[in-house]
C-alpha cells in the first residue's frame, strides 16, 4: 500500500513479536507494549519464551532497533 511519507505518529517503534497479556484481552492497555507494566510478563513470538532469538531478554525497553531480530509493526520503514 502506497502511503504519503511524513513523520510517524508513533513515539517508539514496537516489535511485532513482543507479546504480553494486554494484546489478548478486551480493553488491554496497549501502552504495555511501550513501557513495561510491572504486573505483566513479556515473551517473544519467535521463541515463545522470555528471551528473543538472540538469547537476550525481551521487554518494551529492550526490544528496539539495536537488536538484529527487531521486527517493527508495519515492517521496516522504506528509506
Amino acid at each position: 500500500m502506497q502511503s504519503e511519507k511524513g513523520p510517524s505518529l508513533l513515539t517508539k517503534p514496537i516489535c511485532q513479536n513482543l507479546c504480553t497479556k494486554a494484546l489478548y484481552t478486551p480493553g488491554g492497555n496497549l501502552k504495555n507494549l511501550v513501557e513495561t507494566n510491572p504486573f505483566s510478563n513479556y515473551w517473544c513470538n519467535c521463541t515463545m519464551t522470555v528471551v528473543g532469538p538472540d538469547d537476550r531478554f525481551v521487554s518494551p525497553e529492550n526490544c528496539n532497533r539495536s537488536r538484529d531480530c527487531f521486527d517493527p509493526i508495519g515492517g521496516t520503514p522504506i528509506a
Partner: peptide, 10 residues
C-alpha cells in the same frame, strides 16, 4: 520474583 521473567508487581 517471577523466576527469569518479569511481572512480579503487586
Amino acid at each position: 520474583t517471577g523466576g527469569i521473567g518479569s511481572g512480579a508487581g503487586f
